[in-house]
């Protein structure tokens, strides 16, 4: 049996605009993935806790109002819990000048406005090597 990809879709920080996160979550589901969906305003330690308990493969962070600036802290917290193998993706309004900082911190990929849902799904399938067992 093919192993199903498990994704956490969430928002950290103070911004509650979660329409985009919901749409992306639905696309993941429609592609056959199992999606843990939470309410926005998660604290970093909550995201670490969920990632640990649910044993997800991917942590997808939606950020529309500068919450991406705390993603490096999240990655640090994940690493200190031994969860450095989880792939962290960021999508939303991310200024180009912050990209390098995020990628250096360990973000695997950044999705900007205009990205199609299909290409996001395809990216996740690719890095998870879909067809093969982990």
């Amino acid at each position: 049996m093919e192993r199903q990809i498990k994704v956490l879709v969430t928002k950290i920080g103070l911004d509650g605009h979660d329409r985009g996160a919901r749409v992306v979550a639905s696309s993941f589901r429609n592609a056959g993935m199992e999606v843990i969906y939470t309410s926005p305003w998660q604290k970093i330690e909550d995201v670490v806790n969920i990632t640990l308990q649910e044993d997800v493969d991917i942590v997808a962070i939606s950020s529309l109002a500068y919450d991406h600036l705390i993603v490096p802290k999240l990655i640090e917290a994940l690493q200190s819990e031994g969860l450095g193998d989880k792939k962290v993706l960021v999508g939303g309004i991310i200024p180009r000048e912050d990209e390098e900082m995020l990628l250096n911190a360990g973000v695997k990929k950044i999705f900007h406005p205009g990205e199609t849902l299909d290409s996001i799904v395809e990216y996740v399938e690719n890095i998870m090597g879909k067809t093969s067992m982990k």
């Binding site: 589901r29 592609a31 056959g32 993935m33 199992e34 969906y37």
Partner: peptide, 10 residues
Amino acid sequence: SNGAILGDRI
């Protein structure tokens, strides 16, 4: 699709 939204945590 075999996919699922697991939303009980909300």
